[in-house]
Computed example of a mutant assay.
Amino acid sequence: MDAEKAEGVRLVPWAEGDFWLLERNNSPEMTEHLGGPESEEKLAGRHRRYVELATGQMYRVTLADGGETVGSVGFWERKWRDGTVWETGWGVLPEFQGRGLAALAARAVVEAARAEGRHRYLHAFPSVEHLASNSVCRRAGFMLLGQVDFEYPKGHWITSNDWRVDLAGDGDRAP
């Protein structure tokens, strides 16, 4: 895509002043596949977790040229199957969607998780109905493992695709 060649992204570690981005991402449009908007109290708790994340990292995604904030991405630990893995998720603000920026951010977060050296696998669990996020996984080099029942947010079960990248090498990467 031409936009991917013309634009790059930079990952900026999540900071105290980034709460506004959670508020922007909390619209019905942005949370349609995530159980809907959260209360201010839940957003404040999420912000605290992002700022204080002990393992993994949340980021504000900015355009490499100019520094304009376009969304968020991160990775964190999750118990999965018989072990612990990294999980990732992202959100790109509506006015920046359709430009390939989420795939660029997902590729960058793969490299950040790989550099941590803590877990072998990074997973993403988008709803099977969330075509855009599934496309991001494909374009970012994740391998589709299949469908799973997934709880997100707590108490809300969805059918998700389990996408994975093997951080120890390229064994899991899609062509």
Rank of each mutant, 00 (worst) to 15 (best):
G91S: 15
G100R: 00
S72V: 00
F96M: 09
E116M: 02
L22K: 02
K79I: 09
G89I: 03
P94G: 07
G36P: 03
D18Y: 04
E87V: 08
S72L: 03
G98N: 03
A124M: 07
A105I: 11
E116F: 05
E29W: 05
H123I: 11
M30H: 05
L43H: 05
A113Y: 02
D65Q: 15
G117L: 04
E77T: 11
W76P: 01
R78H: 15
R99L: 11
F19V: 08
W20F: 15
T31A: 05
G89P: 07
T84F: 09
L101R: 00
A64C: 07
E29R: 12
E23K: 07
F19D: 10
E111N: 06
F75Q: 00
G66I: 14
A102L: 00
E111G: 14
G98D: 05
D18W: 05
W76S: 12
A102H: 01
V85E: 14
G66W: 11
G83Y: 04
G100W: 00
G100A: 04
E41C: 00
G45S: 06
R81L: 15
G17P: 07
E95T: 11
R81G: 06
G98Q: 02
T88C: 13
D65L: 15
V85G: 01
F19E: 13
G74W: 05
E111Q: 15
G91T: 12
A115F: 11
E77V: 10
E77M: 10
V61M: 10
G35D: 10
E41Q: 10
E52N: 09
A54L: 08
W14L: 03
T55W: 03
A112V: 01
P94Y: 02
A54N: 00
V92K: 05
V92N: 01
T31C: 04
R60V: 14
E38K: 13
G56M: 03
R49F: 15
S27E: 04
